[in-house]
Design a protein around this nucleic acid. Structure first.
Lengths: 170, 170
DNA sequence: GATTTTAAGTCAGTCATGTTGACATATTTA
DNA sequence: TAAATATGTCAACATGACTGACTTAAAATC
């Protein structure tokens, strides 16, 4: 970091600089933390010729069985066509199954098959292990702060909906 | 979340469940927070027909002028071929420039052109604005926790190097 | 000085995952 | 009955990753 001046080397009143530097560090930490957090699951998915897109669909179907396609689209914010390809793969590999909704028979409600449950559990366990280590090492106060800041990063017009979906504790 | 039972509805001693649920919330918050954090920059990049890959290269070149290609590869952890295409685009659009290293003339040191600086500053300001709002709303203790947990998510064999690169405050 | 290693670039092909746009079908709602 | 909705599908395309093979120039080593 030869180009990044230390705070001490600058004018004493450059609080703005300190602030900008703190924000830059937060931005970069988010990049590296996110990337490495996904690496465990990525490695496992690669052995199955599946990608992140499959993982995300599997995750949200697993956590909320009988999820409708439209709900999943709202969660993932991708196009119907993109999701369609992923669901097709997961169906072909017997990781998920569909059935028409009882109230609304246009809907195709999605749920995991036993094989899908197994994979979902395996991936989630891996991710929880890494997250658990970070939580444990950081301590409960840090965990609360982590969640608070991340919640603040969510788009304002989405935040209430997302936090409600994730669960009450936020 | 019809399928997610509240903690109260379960057996009193299910601390494991509480913990698993807390970890799941952290995982999901990271997903949504990261996605929405990038959305500002993505929108701006799209107007210029640039993508995230360009943004990342621009960011790390901007923060450390005269960066060698190899250093950038180490930071981004992508292949030379992938980076090559991105750098070619950025060079063609006069956003970065190269010059041979003085000590090692095999190296091509990368730096931003004035136009690159302008774009870099514009993108960084946008991202800082969103991060600043989240930091401000969450408070300083939360910010410390946010950083602590994210640092813990970085791959162990990378952590020291990454934290050193990001800056002392972590 | 000759050989090996390193830094960088390039060509070619592939894959995963996103996009737009147009359209089809079944079902529900107005 | 007509309109809106939920889903699926075809086609074409862009981005950004990958592997593998190879070249060139310069530095480091023997």
């Amino acid at each position: 970091m030869t180009d990044l001046k230390s705070a001490e080397s600058r004018s004493p009143a450059s609080l703005l600089y300190l602030r900008e530097d703190e924000l830059r560090r937060g931005i970069e930490l988010l990049f590296f933390g996110y990337r490495d957090f996904l690496s465990d699951a990525d490695a496992e998915l690669a052995t199955l010729s599946l990608g992140r897109a499959h993982h995300r669909a599997l995750h949200f179907i697993g956590r909320q069985p009988d999820l409708a396609v439209n709900e999943l689209l709202t969660i993932l914010k991708i196009t119907k066509q993109s999701l369609g390809r992923v669901l097709k793969d997961l169906l072909a590999r017997d990781l998920i199954e569909q059935r028409p909704g009882r109230r609304d028979r246009r809907q195709r409600l999605l749920r995991l098959t036993p094989a899908g449950e197994a994979l979902h559990a395996q991936l989630l366990t891996r991710q929880r292990t890494r997250m658990a280590r970070a939580f444990r090492e950081a301590g409960p106060d840090a965990v609360a702060g982590f969640r608070k800041v991340l919640a603040g990063l969510i788009a304002e017009d989405e935040r209430a909906r997302v936090l409600a979906m994730i669960g009450a504790g936020n």
